[in-house]
Amino acid sequence: MEVPYIVKEREDTGLINSKLGIWVFLASEIMLFGGLFSAYIFLRLAAAPGDFAHWSAELSVPLATVNTLVLISSSVSMVMAWASLKLNAFPKYRMYMGITLLCALIFLVIKYFEYTGKFHHDIYPSSSTFMAIYFTLTGLHGIHIIGGMIVMLYFWLPVGSKMWDSQPEHFANRVEVLGLYWHFVDLVWIFLFPVLYLL
């Protein structure tokens, strides 16, 4: 059985089902990360004065700044991948999706160096309340990056992108939905960066 309204919009919602579905999922994601941001605020309020600032100083602002720029670049290349499909330029789509994947990989590699740098100095989630919430928030965000990369890889490789030949509009809609998820992951980092590294 085929899923209805994935190319043509439903009359009542004015949307394709997959787009409505991803937005409802993103709403649940706002609550998930929102809950953790809320936890951060209360842990900070309850911490000894200067404690969060002291532990935050252990983090590398230059690495996080580079990571922010990398993630922003991945967001723009993702939207360019979708626009390329709308312009019937499949080779350009593959190039932009490849760049997005590469940026995601660079982000994870930098995060790996940040994490191992901390472990090297005997800093773990158990070291302080700040480090506990830092590893929880960035770890959960990192898992989202990995999830996005798996779907990106599938749509980049011939196994997933062959749909373009038979159902181009359906494929472009799939990429748009993936893009919405990816921009959300970028959006979460936009708040994580100042909250964890700069304040």
Binding site: M78, H183, I190, P194
Partner: peptide, 25 residues
């Protein structure tokens, strides 16, 4: 910091996620 982050988030949501022209639903 939160004001700047909110402006950045609005740009991503508004233009990359097309919320500026999205359906009311």
């Amino acid at each position: 910091a939160l004001i700047i982050a909110s402006i950045k988030a609005s740009l991503v949501a508004g233009y990359f996620m097309h919320l500026i022209s999205e359906r009311n639903t």
